[in-house]
C-alpha cells in the first residue's frame, strides 16, 4: 500500500510539473502602443532575437518581452502571416507602409523567413521603377546637389540607359 501511495504521489508530482511547464509556454509581447499579446512559445521560436533572450535568462515564470518599436497593428499582421505559413497572397494584400514596417521588424527580431519574404516582395514592387518612384517608396530625401547627381549618373551611365524619367 505504502509503495503504491508513493508511486501515486510521484505521478501527481510529475503531472503538476507538466502543468507548470505548460503554463510557462506562453510569452507576453508588449507593443509600442501598450497592448500585451500573449503568444505560444512555438511562435517565438522563429523570432531569434527573443529566443536568444529567453535562452540567456532561463526563467521559470512566464516571460514578458517589450517591443517598443513594434505597434500592435504590425504585430498582429505578422501573426497573420505566420499562421498563414507566409502565403504570397497575404503579402500582396499588405499596404506599402505595412510591408516596409514588417520587413524592418523581421530584421529586428531576426525572423529569417519573414525577412526573406518581405524583402523579395519589396524588390518586386520597385523592380524596373524610376529613381523618383523608389525615392517616394522609401521616403528618401535627395540630399545630392543637382551637380552631384548629374555626375553620379554620368559615372554609372550604362545603368540609366533606356530608363524613362518621370
Amino acid at each position: 500500500m505504502g509503495e503504491r501511495g508513493e508511486e501515486w504521489e510521484a505521478v501527481m508530482l510529475r503531472k503538476a510539473e507538466e502543468e507548470e511547464s505548460k503554463a510557462v509556454k506562453k510569452v507576453k509581447l508588449v507593443t509600442s502602443d501598450g497592448v500585451t499579446m500573449e503568444v505560444e512559445i512555438s511562435t517565438v521560436k522563429e523570432m531569434e532575437t527573443i529566443q536568444a533572450f529567453m535562452n540567456a535568462t532561463d526563467t521559470d515564470n512566464s516571460i514578458i518581452f517589450p517591443l517598443p518599436k513594434v505597434s500592435s497593428h504590425i504585430l498582429s499582421r505578422i501573426m497573420e502571416l505566420m499562421s498563414g505559413e507566409y502565403d504570397q497572397e497575404l503579402v500582396k494584400r499588405l499596404s506599402h507602409e505595412e510591408l516596409k514596417e514588417i520587413c524592418m521588424v523581421a530584421n529586428y527580431l531576426n525572423m529569417k523567413t519573414l525577412l526573406h519574404l518581405t524583402a523579395s516582395a519589396i524588390a518586386n514592387l520597385i523592380q524596373n521603377k524610376s529613381v523618383e518612384f523608389v525615392r517616394h517608396f522609401f521616403n528618401i530625401i535627395n540630399d545630392f546637389t543637382p551637380e552631384e547627381e548629374v555626375q553620379l549618373r554620368k559615372t554609372h551611365e550604362w545603368a540609366f540607359e533606356g530608363v524613362d524619367e518621370d
Binding site: 529613381v131 523608389v134 525615392r135 528618401i140 530625401i141 535627395n142 540630399d143 545630392f144 554609372h156 545603368a159
Partner: peptide, 8 residues
Amino acid sequence: VQSSVLSK
C-alpha cells in the same frame, strides 16, 4: 547600381 543616386 541605379540606387546609388537616391541619396548620399
